[in-house]
Write a protein that binds this DNA or RNA. Sequence first.
DNA 1: TTGAATGCAAAGCTTTTGCAATTCA
DNA 2: TGAATTGCAAAAGCTTTGCATTCAA
Lengths: 132, 132
Amino acid sequence: MLNVDKTLHRQGYRLTKQRRQILGALTPRPQSVYQMMKTLKPKGIDKVTVYRALACFVQLGIAGKIQLDDNTAHYELLAGSKHHHHLICKSCGSVDDIPLNEKLFLNKIRKLTKFQIQRHALEFFGLCAECQ
Amino acid sequence: MLNVDKTLHRQGYRLTKQRRQILGALTPRPQSVYQMMKTLKPKGIDKVTVYRALACFVQLGIAGKIQLDDNTAHYELLAGSKHHHHLICKSCGSVDDIPLNEKLFLNKIRKLTKFQIQRHALEFFGLCAECQ
DNA sequence: TTGAATGCAAAGCTTTTGCAATTCA
DNA sequence: TGAATTGCAAAAGCTTTGCATTCAA
């Protein structure tokens, strides 16, 4: 939390009461803004504020933004968590994390192309153990 | 084209003039509906028709639907093309294909979890050679 | 002939923008 | 104080739905 505070201030941002609560609603597991609003709306926080705070967090590397199959963005807490990938259940919508080592791919692309990779996304869609 | 015709009919769908043209607008490289409409609108095809045809093609495995970072769906022609992955330029928006062998990952997940994988998406975001 | 497909209009969602009021440093 | 932030309303996109009409098998 202190680190987040510093990171924000260093860039001229402020850690307001609302942003602290939005940060608290973020988890390592990706959530849509709609899902986050279930917690945040009762606290009087507007969804516009959430969108703006999330954009700020993503820009600072505090949160990650991923697109799943439902045309909506999902946000996850990055601070302190290792890079990982996702198992997304088509039935219940649950999202689980899984660590995979993708260095081979990154190296291969560097060798084959001149593309400069900034980030990547690896997602697996299917059925979780419960839904099969 | 004949195969597509058969595939459609087998499921009770029809290959209409419009669908033939929508199919013709699809490429192995993912495009948004907006991009496809540049070709299709002049031919008098409504975007609702395009959405409905694409949903049909995706269901039959003729087309693939992927989500990029811009909150819009992109569609690619799958028929006859090998499974591949994407290099997406953040600057110019170009999408290039790259083949990678992900069997190691699929096997690892099968070993580690009970998740039943139906499909996966692997995308690399960054800068293409021209935009660096 | 008849169920599938089309096109238009309208609605539904998610996300963004404008702006006055508020808050934090 | 002054710039950043908030919340409300409204707008902007993308996508879906309803329905009468048209079309393909």
